[in-house]
Design a protein around this nucleic acid. Sequence first.
DNA 1: TATTGTTATACTCTATAACTATA
DNA 2: TATAGTTATAGAGTATAACAATA
Lengths: 147, 147
Amino acid sequence: MEEIAAFGVLGERLGLQLHYADVRAMAGLAARLSPLKVTPARATAIVYIALHAGCDQTTLGRALGVNRASTMKAVDELEVLGAIERRPGRDRRTNALHLTAAGETLRARIEQETLAHDQAAFGALTVAEQAELSRLLSKVRSDSASA
Amino acid sequence: MEEIAAFGVLGERLGLQLHYADVRAMAGLAARLSPLKVTPARATAIVYIALHAGCDQTTLGRALGVNRASTMKAVDELEVLGAIERRPGRDRRTNALHLTAAGETLRARIEQETLAHDQAAFGALTVAEQAELSRLLSKVRSDSASA
DNA sequence: TATTGTTATACTCTATAACTATA
DNA sequence: TATAGTTATAGAGTATAACAATA
């Protein structure tokens, strides 16, 4: 990808700057997670299931921002990977999602790699700058939610 | 999409916060550009061609961060849309990309919508905060480039 | 009637590989 | 040999629509 300056006035837009930063960060994270055989999206699913053991697929899908059909594919993949399992849920319609022992090991490695990536990607910022970036981003998110 | 808090420790990562902010901003921009029949990616191509009239497809692709095959599809679409045209290039292998009159009109509307979106998405920040966010993002980008 | 999981299907975006015509 | 454009094909990722079982 070329320089933002190549886009003139629009290159000064915060939206474009934000997008470029995100694309680069996501590519870096994907590369780091690649040896673990998970994408950032799958890794996010694993982390969510770890924190919400027994949740159903619809709930997971909502958390990930995808519909039930897409959630199916994710859950199928993670099951084939041996990271999670479907157990009987609160009623006969629902599955309760749980990490397997292998999934817990994987989750730990994901957390490690993810935090290491964060440090690599944002390490150029001082601690104060990181806190400020976090504050600004949360302000942006809460606003664009209402827009 | 649910709350970042649903991801525990990893929800505090700047990478996730950045990604969520970007996903929301891009969705908003896509919705705004939708009546113009262009996606954010196509809009970016139009803006680039406007600023680099006569550029070839390979150069455009590099600027957009996609390969030649993907660039073909983008150029084809924009040509069907009537926004750009392929003219003879600097040698017989290359095309020189130019906006049509309709493309110039479209570019103006894209610029207007894009700037309006930026204001909507980042309007919650003061001017000083916007400048600071821009500074922090450029620092992140320049660092992750070397990482 | 509404919800959950499921399946089939299709669409978008992007990539790889191979071909052609030029250079 | 290398480059620009092109084409065909395939792989992610996601969505919609419909169905069965259950509530």
